[in-house]
Computed example of a mutant assay.
Amino acid sequence: MDNVKQWLSARRFIYSWLALCYRGEVKAGLDILSNTAIMRELSGYQRQPAIVDGARKIMQEMNEQKNNDKYTELLASDCQRLFVGPGPVLAPPWESVYRTRDKLLFGEPDDAVRKIYLREGLVVNQAEPADHIALELAFMARVGAVAQENSENTVEIMNIQCSFLKEHLLSWVPDWQKDVTCNAETHFWSGLAMITKGWIVDDFAESCEYKQCIRV
């Protein structure tokens, strides 16, 4: 069970860090990289080549830019260009854009994830798209925290996460990752998108394995 708790803590940390970066909090995201071994650990992640490749891209760029005082600004600018605008948003960070015919915000996926959040006690401002990549990843972290704190409901909570991964994140993030990779001007963002895709794919598979272990 201790191994399960460690695993739950590690995956919660990854989801939280990814959500932080996609909220545009670049400096905070870089500070975590500077103060932890997360990139080194991900660069040796044998189960998913995409995670390894993405981590190595980020590590290489950070090493090359270690003496560049403007690196954080460079990443923030690329983040704005990719995910916010002004002008065409090159890698729209909303599920509805990828899963609706008209590719518009506040589509059916937005309504679906909003209902899931509400069912788990989370409320998103009606004026804010609920299916933003950062919010979906933060939801995974938040529900994961509940699993850590309440071991009696771990399997039930992981079922919620697996369902959310399958029905939402896995249904659009692979296509979104391609847009990020094609349009990013920095290896940080293209690498982070690769890590994100690889992580949710592997986490879904690994969660199914761990649920069996927990039941035993």
Score class of each variant (00 low, 15 high):
3 N>H: 14
4 V>E: 12
5 K>P: 05
5 K>A: 15
7 W>G: 11
8 L>P: 01
8 L>Y: 00
8 L>F: 00
8 L>N: 02
8 L>Q: 01
8 L>V: 03
9 S>D: 12
10 A>T: 09
12 R>S: 08
12 R>T: 10
12 R>A: 06
12 R>C: 08
14 I>C: 01
14 I>Q: 01
15 Y>S: 10
16 S>E: 09
16 S>R: 05
17 W>L: 15
19 A>V: 03
19 A>Y: 01
21 C>T: 01
21 C>R: 06
22 Y>D: 00
22 Y>F: 08
23 R>E: 02
23 R>P: 02
26 V>S: 06
26 V>M: 04
26 V>Y: 09
26 V>C: 05
27 K>L: 14
28 A>N: 07
30 L>K: 06
31 D>Q: 10
32 I>Q: 07
32 I>K: 06
34 S>Q: 12
34 S>D: 11
35 N>C: 14
35 N>R: 15
35 N>P: 11
36 T>C: 03
36 T>V: 07
37 A>V: 10
37 A>R: 11
37 A>M: 11
38 I>S: 07
38 I>F: 02
38 I>T: 08
39 M>L: 15
39 M>P: 00
40 R>P: 00
41 E>F: 04
41 E>C: 01
41 E>Y: 01
42 L>D: 01
42 L>Q: 01
42 L>N: 01
43 S>H: 07
45 Y>E: 15
45 Y>I: 03
45 Y>T: 00
46 Q>E: 14
48 Q>C: 13
48 Q>F: 05
49 P>K: 03
52 V>K: 15
53 D>C: 10
53 D>Y: 12
53 D>F: 10
55 A>E: 05
56 R>P: 00
56 R>I: 11
58 I>Q: 01
59 M>W: 12
59 M>P: 04
59 M>G: 14
60 Q>T: 13
60 Q>A: 13
60 Q>D: 11
61 E>F: 03
62 M>H: 13
62 M>Q: 14
62 M>V: 10
62 M>L: 15
63 N>M: 12
64 E>R: 14
65 Q>C: 08
65 Q>K: 14
65 Q>P: 00
66 K>V: 12
67 N>K: 06
68 N>P: 02
68 N>G: 00
68 N>T: 05
69 D>N: 08
69 D>H: 04
69 D>M: 03
70 K>S: 09
72 T>M: 04
72 T>P: 00
73 E>L: 05
73 E>D: 05
74 L>G: 04
74 L>M: 15
75 L>R: 00
77 S>T: 14
79 C>S: 13
79 C>E: 12
79 C>I: 09
81 R>C: 04
82 L>P: 02
83 F>Y: 12
85 G>R: 00
87 G>E: 02
87 G>K: 04
90 L>C: 03
91 A>N: 08
91 A>H: 09
92 P>Q: 05
92 P>H: 07
93 P>A: 06
93 P>M: 06
93 P>K: 00
96 S>M: 03
97 V>R: 04
98 Y>P: 12
99 R>G: 08
101 R>T: 13
102 D>Y: 13
102 D>Q: 15
103 K>C: 13
103 K>Q: 15
104 L>S: 12
105 L>N: 04
106 F>S: 00
108 E>T: 11
109 P>E: 04
109 P>F: 10
109 P>V: 06
110 D>Q: 06
110 D>A: 05
110 D>P: 00
